[in-house]
């Protein structure tokens, strides 16, 4: 267990080292946040709204703040697989899936906290209608945080499945491009899931991608009431367990048929 914790700490440290990347990420995500809100404002001007605009602004900010959780593959791990340095990890007395899983969690957690916290502080002080609103209730905040943790575990399990594909194809770009498209669309990053037609939402909210950020954000903004939380968290938990189990099976199969090419 200690080994996994150490790997987690090590990856966290590494993430903290790249300060320039953090600053760049913050500026980029701030820009996207402002542009998206401006677009929604323009679209909604003088039209009836299905949800309060402050919810949409909060949704956008929270999505942008935790963007790093969704779209960031650990370049070190991909390199290891591509160059064959994974051979070293294969001869450690560890579970390889777990060893990579903790590194992915560490990267996503540290990366998004470093970017997200300053961004959310900034978003809180923006004028009404542009900025992040306070949570709907203390319960909503707590449930949202719990949902965020589950979302982190769920997205890491998804990422590890992408890693599994990379072990087969050696190049992550194809599969990742495809999965990222799904991720961006169905996680609510491009268009908040709350703005999809109601009939679509019944299905979309059940997909694994909705479990990552959409669920915690709905709990935070009050779009979903605390009474609905148990059901939503349960769906998150189910997906997390299912994706983890799938990942472990996939990796076991990979490990049996792996070839490390080259000398």
């Amino acid at each position: 267990m200690k080994a996994y914790l150490s790997a987690f700490r090590m990856r966290r440290r590494l993430e903290v080292q790249y300060r320039g990347a953090v600053l760049g990420g913050i500026i980029c995500q701030m820009f996207f946040g402002l542009v998206l809100i401006a677009v929604y404002k323009a679209l909604y001007a003088g039209k009836p709204q299905s949800m309060p605009f402050s919810h949409i602004a909060s949704y956008v900010w929270l999505q942008q703040a935790f963007f790093r959780m969704l779209l960031a593959s650990d370049p070190d791990l991909l390199d290891k697989i591509r160059t064959g340095s994974i051979a070293y990890d294969l001869c450690r007395p560890l579970n390889l899936y777990g060893f990579y899983y903790v590194r992915i969690v560490a990267q996503k957690l540290t990366g998004s906290l470093m970017r997200g916290v300053p961004m959310l502080v900034f978003a809180l002080i923006l004028p009404e209608g542009w900025g992040l609103s306070m949570p709907a209730s203390p319960a909503g905040l707590c449930l949202g945080l719990a949902g965020l943790m589950l979302g982190l575990l769920c997205v890491s399990a998804l990422e590890n499945i992408t890693m599994g594909f990379t072990m087969r194809t050696l190049d992550s770009r194809g599969m990742q491009g495809l999965l990222n498209l799904l991720m961006m669309t169905f996680s609510g990053n491009i268009l908040p899931l709350t703005l999809f037609p109601d009939s679509w939402q019944h299905v979309i909210t059940l997909l694994p991608y909705a479990q990552l950020l959409d669920t915690p954000i709905r709990l935070y903004t009050g779009e979903a009431l605390p009474a609905e939380a148990p059901r939503m968290l349960l769906i998150q938990l189910c997906w997390t367990l299912l994706l983890t189990a799938l990942g472990i099976l996939f990796w076991q199969r990979n490990q049996r048929r792996i070839e490390i090419q080259g000398g």
């Binding site: 080994a3 080292q17 340095s85 001869c91």
Partner: peptide, 30 residues
């Protein structure tokens, strides 16, 4: 694998961006 050591001359097991000692500390825990 607990009883063996391996060196692949063309690959690396240590972490690229951190001091060597820290990579060793991780191996200690592993």
């Amino acid at each position: 694998v607990r009883r063996i050591g391996v060196v692949f001359g063309q690959r690396t097991q240590l972490w690229w961006d951190v001091p060597v000692r820290d990579s060793y500390d991780l191996l200690k825990d592993i």
